[in-house]
Nucleic acid binder design. Structure first.
Length: 511
RNA sequence: GGUCCGUUCGUCUAGGGGUUAGGACGCAAGAUUUUCAUUCUUGUAACACGGGUUCGAUUCCCGUACGGACUACCA
């Protein structure tokens, strides 16, 4: 165990788009694996055919790739432990023999109960207010299984082709303890552990059996998963024990959950819709309903920002720095600094992270990202590369997303729309004479913003206008409103002709 | 109902038997700026409660409350 190569896996079910909490789980697995020079494996746990969703696996793969989380092994990638889809492994008979082994050793049994019968049992226990309302040592004697039925009878049932499942036989009155990497020692009494189904009637293993068999067969050293799995951990410990695999058992680490920003409960898709943020890395279109859920990528987030934000949601690094590259995260990651309590998701902080990354991006890179957006927003109007780069330089401190450069900075690309409300903000002291003086200054061949500003201020002084009022007029005529980069910079970038035309247009509308 | 996990500013968190309980987001104010934003400065605001243990507890222990997860032939 000590000298084994570190191997971690992320094992999602293809039942829909990968949730941002799932991305975080994958990230923590990846960071730990890479920190220790180990492998990160993607395994698809598609043992539930009823919940299988077309396109979900491809979505998962794309999402991880977008985040910069690259599996060393997985479907479509290959590896020594192929295949990496549990449905395919089942076809190979990977799980059946371990179920058989457990039955043979007396640690599992066949059960024939129908869904209705199981339901009836639970109802009965609920009405009786039984403290344990499960299929367990306390109830299995009254159910239809190979422990309660005479041997000839249950063998006959199997011979007749009656459907059955294999259940784990959990002993009564035992203490089951294990050490969680994040939580320390956790103890359960086996009396409250149910006889979990290991093999379903369709021959598919359940998660409980499948993940254990695969973790051992794939030499997984650390099983890092969400806290929702903690209650079933004792079942898993038992399975390892009964299979004689205690020495091969990976170290378990149960991650805190991601919670709703407001109120209580697990973060869900509905919260995103309700509060206006994404809970998925990429946009997802539900194949059956056609409903579209927004993604971080489409919203305009940089993958580095999402990764950075996610990493710090429930984990922290010593020191006061908060911006970390993937390499830095890998170099510093450890489970010791994973917080035990669930973390409420904070959309505001997510934006802040993106702003930090946006500011650090080179202008030219932003321009490349902006160009396709401009094409779409302004009907294929063409703009020079240097111009777009300059726009990015001026706007990057004022936006959260690149796309906002096109919206908040639309005045760079098309003439502003002068609203009556904004025109009303202009002082009535502006005279035609002043306008002519402005047009004259703009028309001069000035290429330096400071010089231009000085010249404009000279006009203001000569015209007996307050600098503030004067600049306000210029700003509204160029930008259309009272915000944005410095007026002289804008005039120089837009060019004398465009600037003069806007000043003229604005003046015309004022009168 | 039962089991398990958890609880430091509104949020993410640091810390840990003796601290002015630190940082970040947010919010507020100020400085800078023609404006907006950035940036800088400052402020705002927290150890759930009750018992122990101790000279001393937010920190350790036990309860309570509250929150969460699980309680499927789903993962």
């Amino acid at each position: 165990m000590e000298n084994r190569k570190v191997r971690l896996r992320f094992a999602p079910s293809p039942t829909g788009p990968l949730h941002i909490g799932g991305v975080r789980s994958a990230l923590y697995n990846y960071l730990f694996a890479k920190k220790h020079g180990g492998d990160f494996i993607l395994r698809i746990e598609d043992t539930d055919q009823n919940r299988y969703v077309e396109g979900a696996e491809a979505y998962i793969v794309k999402s991880l790739a977008w985040c910069g989380i690259h599996p060393d092994e997985g479907p479509g990638i290959g590896g020594e432990y192929t295949p990496y889809r549990q449905s395919e492994r089942k076809e190979l008979g990977v799980y059946q023999k371990y179920a058989d082994q457990l039955v043979a050793s007396g640690n599992a049994y066949y059960a024939f109960d129908t869904a209705e019968e199981l339901d009836a049992m639970r109802k009965k226990l609920e009405i009786a207010k039984a403290s344990i309302q499960q299929y367990s040592h306390a109830t299995r004697g009254e159910m239809k299984n190979s422990l309660s039925l005479p041997e000839e009878e249950w063998k006959q049932k199997i011979a007749n082709g009656e459907p059955f499942v294999v259940r784990l036989k959990v002993p009564a009155g035992e203490e089951i303890r294990f050490t969680d990497v994040i939580r320390g020692e956790v103890v359960f009494n086996s009396d409250v552990v149910d006889d979990k189904v290991l093999l379903k009637s369709d021959g598919m293993p359940t998660y409980h059996l499948a993940h254990i068999v695969d973790d051992v067969l794939m030499d997984i050293t650390h099983a890092v998963r969400g806290e929702e799995w903690l209650p079933s951990a004792p079942s898993h410990i038992l399975i390892y024990r009964y299979l004689g695999w205690e020495d091969k058992m990976p170290q378990y680490a149960h991650l805190p959950l991601l919670l709703k920003p407001d109120g209580n409960g697990k973060l869900s898709k509905r919260d995103g819709d309700r509060l206006g943020f994404s809970v998925f890395p990429l946009e997802w279109k539900d194949p059956s309903s056609g409903e579209i859920s927004s993604g971080y990528r489409e919203t305009g987030y940089f993958p580095e920002a999402v990764v950075n934000m996610l990493a710090l949601l429930g984990w922290n690094m010593e020191g006061e720095k908060e911006i970390f590259s993937m390499e830095e995260l890998i170099a510093n990651f450890s489970f010791e600094h994973v917080h035990k309590a669930g973390a409420k998701f904070n959309p505001e902080k997510a934006k802040w992270f993106n702003e930090q990354y946006l500011k650090e991006k080179p202008d030219a890179e932003l321009a490349e990202l902006l160009k396709p957006i401009l094409l779409k927003t302004f009907n294929d109007k063409e703009f020079k590369d240097e111009f777009v780069v300059e726009v990015c330089r001026m706007m990057k401190d004022r936006v959260t997303f690149v796309s906002e450069i096109a919206t908040k900075g639309s005045f760079f690309f098309v003439s502003p729309n002068y609203t009556a409300e904004n025109l009303a903000k202009i002082s009535k002291t502006i005279t035609e004479e002043a306008i002519n003086a402005i047009l004259d200054v703009i028309g001069r061949d000035i290429t330096d913003a400071a010089n231009l500003e000085a010249s404009l201020k000279e006009v203001a002084t000569a015209q007996n206008l307050k600098i503030g009022e004067f600049m306000k007029f210029l700003r509204i005529s160029i930008v259309g409103e009272l915000s944005g980069p410095g007026v002289p910079d804008l005039i120089l970038l837009l060019g004398a002709n465009e600037a003069k035309s806007r000043v003229g247009e604005c003046w015309k509308l004022m009168n």
